[in-house]
Design a protein around this nucleic acid. Structure first.
Lengths: 241, 241
DNA sequence: CGCATACTTGACTCTATTCAAGGTTAGTGG
DNA sequence: CCACTAACCTTGAATAGAGTCAAGTATGCG
């Protein structure tokens, strides 16, 4: 019989622990954390992980699958603020206001872990490494958001698409998957919405990049054919030097 | 002779303490915090508070004046990611990477407080309320960034301008200043850059809103004449219902 | 007072949007 | 396994909003 119960092992043995909350935590602290983490049954596509306006109680970690986060604007249309892959944390934007400013929905069948925030706060009072990790994650989230902002400001449709594809390529690679062949989990119109473009523009832009031999796309399956040219497209910027 | 030294008083007696780090901290804890806060001599317009690529050591709080934060894109042009008013914190996006992803410069003569981060972390291990406040500030920052993203995605020049003016109006009001008459601290082209617009478009958009009687602008002085119409313009969204 | 910078204005161009229609895919039920 | 339906995606033509280029005007600093 092992010294630690299966529940205490779940974070340590999770393939994602080096990307997720337990990152860089000593093993003992990881077990402590695992005790308050609630794993849930799989959620099928289109299930709400959290809803805008709802009372903030927990943060969530994506374990498998993928999630999109969006806000309903007063005008009635939604704006998608991000897509989340395994190991990424949801709900951190609700700490200040104690209620969720945005809604998160699964894009496919997904496993999500729930971490009750009050317990996490108490735990991090006892475990300074956990407190530091929380701050690090939020800080990383902040710079990611800033990159998204740069993505939208004064960039052409081609640049936006190139940026987001390279971003996904990188994130898949971080998860041990191929950086060149992957499957986008969201619909074209979700991606268009995220990039601040019309779906039609998205479609045409895909074709144009395909015609130039930078990538190939069939449905949701993407193949990056020329990552260097894509990166140059991004860096080339508005004016171009 | 008072029980606490002047240094220990500086945060408690600062007019901004209810907006800044000490917010909701008990008085004793505020004094503890004040001990590690370094106030500096005024910085004149155009001084770097922190520079992209620089080693992360401290976060900074604006005490008077204003600051802009920008990133130099690989293409050579800069993108301004935010403007900071008194009581706002700079540098939180550097915690994860331990080096600043962006550059912050004063827009006018400003006072800035420096808070060494290692000391702040140690202090917050002893003071749970301070830890909570740090997380709250970062969370608030996250939702602010998300609003900026919404601002840029698929909104017209008019809507972007209306949004940013209402945002400043609100932030000035929070600082006890007029919500209707204020002075924008940045240049037109900085504002245009922030909104992802060409300076010329900015200029024309100001004129158009002025012609419709929504506001009046003379140099950097803005008067909001019809806040309701401005808000409706923002909410009216792309399609309009 | 003069120079430099910042701002404005006009004319033209171009990219992305909109509207409209047709084609594909995926998921459902027989 | 196939047929059917409803999303989803693509394509085309016309339009509009913002960008660019270029010149002129205000503003402020030395």
């Amino acid at each position: 019989m092992p010294a630690t119960s299966p529940a205490r092992e779940k974070c340590r043995t999770c393939r994602l622990h080096s990307l997720c909350l337990p990152r860089e935590l000593p093993q003992g602290d990881t077990s402590e954390l695992a005790r308050i983490v609630q794993t849930r049954r799989p959620m099928k596509r289109g299930t709400y992980v959290l809803q805008a306006g709802g009372h903030f109680q927990s943060i969530f970690a994506v374990r498998t699958g993928s999630v999109k986060t969006s806000t309903l604007l007063p005008s009635g249309d939604e704006h998608i603020s991000g897509f989340h892959l395994p190991g990424e944390i949801l709900g951190l934007d609700a700490i200040a206001s104690r209620s969720h400013p945005s809604t998160s929905v699964t894009l496919e069948t997904s496993h999500v872990c729930e971490i009750p925030f009050t317990e996490l706060e108490h735990l991090s009072e006892r475990i300074p490494a956990l407190q530091r990790q929380l701050l690090r994650i939020m800080s990383r989230e902040l710079s990611t958001e800033q990159s998204t902002t740069h993505l939208l400001a004064r960039r052409s449709a081609e640049q936006r698409l190139a940026m987001v594809l390279l971003d996904f390529s990188q994130r898949f690679a971080n998860r041990g998957l191929s950086a060149r062949h992957f499957r986008l989990p969201m619909s074209r119109s979700d991606l268009a919405n995220y990039l601040g473009l019309a779906p039609e523009t998205m479609s045409r832009t895909f074709r144009r990049l395909e015609a130039r031999g930078l990538l190939s796309i069939a449905g949701k399956a993407v193949v990056i054919l020329d990552p260097i040219a894509l990166a140059e497209l991004v860096d080339g910027a508005s004016g171009g030097s």
